[in-house]
Simulated assay, not measured.
Amino acid sequence: MKRIIIGALAMATITFAACNSSHPSHEGHEHDSSAIAGEAVQQEAAAVKPQFTNVDPATAASLKLVVDHYLHIKNALAGDNASEAANGGKGMAAAMEKVDKAVMTSEQQQLYTENEDDLKEHAGHISKNGNNIEHQREHFAQMSEDVYALVKSFGGGQALYHDHCPMYNNNKGALWLSESKEIKNPYFGSEMATCGAVKEVMAPSAL
Score class of each variant (00 low, 15 high):
residue 33 S to M: 12
residue 33 S to A: 11
residue 34 S to V: 06
residue 34 S to T: 11
residue 34 S to F: 13
residue 34 S to Y: 15
residue 34 S to A: 12
residue 35 A to D: 14
residue 35 A to L: 07
residue 37 A to L: 13
residue 37 A to T: 04
residue 37 A to K: 06
residue 37 A to H: 04
residue 38 G to R: 06
residue 38 G to F: 05
residue 38 G to T: 09
residue 39 E to Y: 03
residue 39 E to N: 09
residue 39 E to R: 13
residue 39 E to F: 01
residue 40 A to P: 01
residue 40 A to C: 07
residue 41 V to K: 10
residue 41 V to S: 10
residue 41 V to D: 15
residue 42 Q to G: 07
residue 42 Q to M: 09
residue 43 Q to S: 14
residue 43 Q to T: 10
residue 44 E to G: 02
residue 44 E to L: 10
residue 44 E to W: 00
residue 45 A to W: 03
residue 45 A to L: 06
residue 46 A to L: 13
residue 46 A to W: 00
residue 46 A to V: 09
residue 46 A to Q: 13
residue 47 A to K: 12
residue 47 A to S: 10
residue 47 A to P: 01
residue 47 A to D: 14
residue 48 V to S: 06
residue 48 V to E: 13
residue 49 K to G: 04
residue 49 K to S: 11
residue 50 P to Q: 09
residue 50 P to C: 11
residue 50 P to I: 08
residue 50 P to F: 03
residue 50 P to N: 07
residue 50 P to Y: 03
residue 52 F to S: 04
residue 53 T to V: 00
residue 53 T to Q: 04
residue 53 T to D: 14
residue 53 T to I: 02
residue 55 V to S: 12
residue 55 V to Y: 01
residue 56 D to F: 02
residue 56 D to P: 01
residue 56 D to T: 00
residue 57 P to M: 05
residue 57 P to I: 02
residue 57 P to D: 14
residue 57 P to F: 04
residue 57 P to C: 07
residue 58 A to G: 10
residue 58 A to I: 10
residue 58 A to W: 00
residue 59 T to D: 04
residue 60 A to N: 11
residue 60 A to E: 14
residue 61 A to Y: 00
residue 61 A to V: 02
residue 62 S to M: 11
residue 62 S to H: 09
residue 62 S to F: 07
residue 63 L to K: 02
residue 63 L to G: 10
residue 64 K to S: 13
residue 64 K to Y: 06
residue 65 L to Y: 02
residue 65 L to H: 09
residue 65 L to V: 08
residue 65 L to E: 15
residue 65 L to A: 14
residue 66 V to H: 08
residue 66 V to I: 08
residue 67 V to K: 12
residue 68 D to R: 08
residue 68 D to Y: 03
residue 68 D to T: 10
residue 68 D to P: 06
residue 68 D to L: 07
residue 68 D to M: 06
residue 69 H to W: 04
residue 69 H to E: 15
residue 69 H to T: 13
residue 70 Y to L: 13
residue 70 Y to S: 11
residue 71 L to H: 09
residue 71 L to N: 13
residue 71 L to D: 14
residue 72 H to A: 05
residue 72 H to M: 09
residue 72 H to C: 04
residue 72 H to E: 15
residue 73 I to D: 14
residue 73 I to Y: 10
residue 73 I to P: 03
residue 73 I to H: 11
residue 74 K to N: 13
residue 74 K to F: 03
residue 75 N to M: 08
residue 75 N to R: 06
residue 75 N to Q: 15
residue 76 A to P: 07
residue 76 A to Y: 06
residue 76 A to H: 03
residue 76 A to V: 10
residue 76 A to D: 14
residue 77 L to W: 01
residue 77 L to E: 11
residue 77 L to S: 08
residue 77 L to D: 10
residue 77 L to G: 00
residue 77 L to V: 00
residue 77 L to T: 05
residue 77 L to K: 03
residue 77 L to Y: 03
residue 78 A to T: 01
residue 78 A to V: 02
residue 79 G to I: 01
residue 79 G to S: 08
residue 79 G to Y: 00
residue 80 D to R: 00
